[in-house]
Design a protein around this nucleic acid. Structure first.
Lengths: 404, 404
DNA sequence: GTAACTTTTTTAATTATTTAATAAGTTTAT
DNA sequence: ATAAACTTATTAAATAATTAAAAAAGTTAC
């Protein structure tokens, strides 16, 4: 029974991570226990100095409730966001703030047998140089591209370990729990817990980047599918353009929508002499080039806007399919491409007007993420806390406390 | 607390409806209560004669467990399956058998303000003529085409009641609980509880009929989306054929896949002189024509097989999208068209080979439903039992018992 | 054929949870 | 201004549920 108590104790901590300043009544609803029990659990947590009182919330017509939040400097998370070439590592606290500068390293994943080893070393390095004692870390969350089996902890595309669990392997080396997930799923998780999808039940989070990823929030939870591969939006067959995709097939959504295509288009336009501010486009760095075009579009450069309109319309065609199949209440545009902002909205809406049954999309809203570039890091941190109750016996918090 | 006891009592009855001959241990796992409590609840149900012992199950290495099943003739369900023109009404028992012949009435839904009234009268008639006392009915389940909001009990396409709840209205007239859902969803529910999707977590049930419907089973449950409209497979925009669809748009999946198209194709082939047994196709009745072509295909008529191959390939294109987005473990072909049987498999598999990333579909199986034509009726009955715990205070079962 | 091991069932005792009664702090209505 | 209504907090008592121990019924291995 001591185990069960721990479970609900941890649930409270988890809830307070996802939302600060909760009252006892709110917590009691969230953990689905009676009021007296919740009171006792909170009392214990306050006594252990893991939770603090944060004053009274405004009255809703009765006595004002005492609210609670997580104590500072008691627990930390390691958050890793990888793409095919660059990996970012950060340490975050329970208030979702970075406690050390985000470490950015070049780490190419394709055909790189050393990648996993380097990743582990870098993570260990960041932890060490933070100066935070290891016992204070809850765990490591990692977002990565490719086919990720969340449960087994395997990535079938990169970081292969002869089909052995990556998470177990890293966990043994680093000495704390490790969780991995697909990058788009983690962006969706970030939106669900801290962004525009907060509290919503059915939301599609489109990750516009070098491909077009998708994180599905269904029934208020991240949906991963049978093997964890759900959300392969990039490669749904929708065009008859004959363009070869990176996946080996032709006509994938990605072939008419990716940011790479926009950069291609910009280059072509320049060389064919189009009048545009894009003539001063930096050609060597994809990331810079992309940001440059997005800025130009936001500033009203007609050619840049045109490029996004075309890609946006095609994304809209894909979104129309999503709406027909899953009837979401919200579509969120997130990921790198979301920096282009509201420029996406009109062409996507246009595509919906043309390709959706009105009844289906009239109650579906379309929004741009407000989480910005750090969505994946936030999601990776949230992934750890998402699993918090299941982490067996987090290293004696009492001890941790005495050190502070 | 008496209410809560009732909840778990009803959960046991529900579980026994979905699966007969369960042992006490199995039930105790399913309702998530301790063994002693489950024993007591079952004892009560046996004492009330709602549940009977059905002997011992084979040993699994220890004492043989007593198994339980629902008593016969104690509870009944009214099951209604509607399409745009024909409505079937049946009375089913807890063993999933029809206790009266399936009533089939012509009831056109489009632009028919009388439809709801007629439906109610017919349901009442079937109940009356069954001779079963009203108290023995648990409720009425209705499957219907169109945009159905399950929670609100509204169909936005047919049986309009100025946006008032259809279920409430029928319930008041008939005097028992009423539940409605989309026809494809109910077919999926039937597959989930009694068919090929039993026990599976993520399954797509494709309802091949005059359109191409879809019932989504996600995380082991029927998924309905934000407003209940999920599964509009028929109208996802995937073709550039310019063919106008019934929904007003062009290029919908339906325009290249529906059984209507196959009948069209058959007629054209005949008039252009193709050598085939289809020359004796009955032209006046769609249902008969469709069955005729399916039989011919099963018997190996080359032209008929060709027709299904073409449609099947296009369905496969749609299924490829489903697999990319939702990573299901199984695809089930159900509905009227499933009578064509294994003829569908090869062309659909062919489309998957061409349009799916291998990793994604290699663990996805493709099956033909074994539930046959009655899937929707079975699903409608299951819909009532799906909600069984929530039905407040089913009319005193003790009284019902005394009458038997 | 018997002992050791399984699984189910029964019973009793402990433990945990909810309910209910009470008090305290705020808002709203009269 | 004051009473009524409402929300939150505290405490004690009643109740419900789980755990644990033991018995019963079978199976498997030696």
């Amino acid at each position: 029974m001591i185990e069960k108590k721990k479970l609900f104790r941890n649930k409270i901590l988890k809830e307070l991570y996802f939302k600060d300043n909760l009252s006892c009544v709110e917590l009691c609803v969230k953990i689905n226990k009676s009021f007296p029990i919740t009171v006792k659990l909170i009392e214990d947590l306050v006594a252990e100095n893991l939770v603090i009182e944060t004053g009274y919330a405004p009255s809703t017509g009765g006595r004002r409730p005492l609210t609670y939040a997580l104590q500072k400097n008691v627990m930390y998370l390691v958050s890793v966001a990888m793409d095919q070439f660059v990996t970012k590592i950060a340490i975050m606290d329970m208030q979702n703030d970075f406690v050390s500068p985000v470490e950015k390293i070049v780490l190419p994943l394709p055909n790189n047998s050393q990648a996993l080893q380097v990743l582990i070393e870098k993570i260990a390095e960041v932890i060490d140089s933070s100066g935070i004692p290891k016992e204070k870390f809850v765990g490591v969350g990692i977002g990565m591209p490719g086919f990720v089996d969340v449960k087994k902890g395997i990535n079938y595309s990169f970081l292969q370990l002869s089909n052995k669990s990556i998470t177990k392997h890293i966990s043994e080396k680093i000495g704390m729990p490790v969780f991995i997930d697909n990058d788009s799923s983690l962006i969706a998780l970030a939106e669900l817990r801290f962004g525009a999808a907060r509290g919503e039940k059915n939301v599609m989070v489109v990750n516009i980047g070098w491909g077009v990823g998708l994180g599905l929030i269904l029934n208020g939870e991240l949906f991963r599918g049978h093997e964890g591969f759900a959300g392969e939006f990039s490669h749904i067959p929708v065009f008859l353009n004959g363009k070869l995709c990176s996946c080996g097939k032709a006509g994938c959504l990605e072939t008419e929508t990716s940011l790479l295509l926009i950069i291609e288009g910009a280059k072509e336009g320049i060389s064919s002499g189009r009048l545009s501010r894009l003539t001063s486009l930096p050609l060597d760095d994809l990331e810079l080039a992309c940001d440059f075009i997005m800025k130009a579009a936001r500033d009203g450069d007609q050619f840049a806007v045109e490029l996004f309109s075309k890609a946006g319309y095609n994304i809209g065609k894909g979104v129309a399919i999503l709406i027909h199949l899953l009837n979401p209440q919200k579509i969120i545009l997130s990921g790198r491409g979301s920096s282009a902002g509201t420029i996406w909205l009109a062409p996507i809406q246009q595509a919906l007007n043309e390709h959706c049954i009105p009844r289906l999309y009239q109650n579906t809203s379309l929004e741009i993420s407000t989480l910005g570039m750090h969505a994946e890091l936030v999601g990776a941190a949230a992934l750890v806390m998402e699993n918090y109750e299941r982490i067996p016996l987090i290293k004696k918090p009492l001890q941790v406390l005495q050190e502070t």
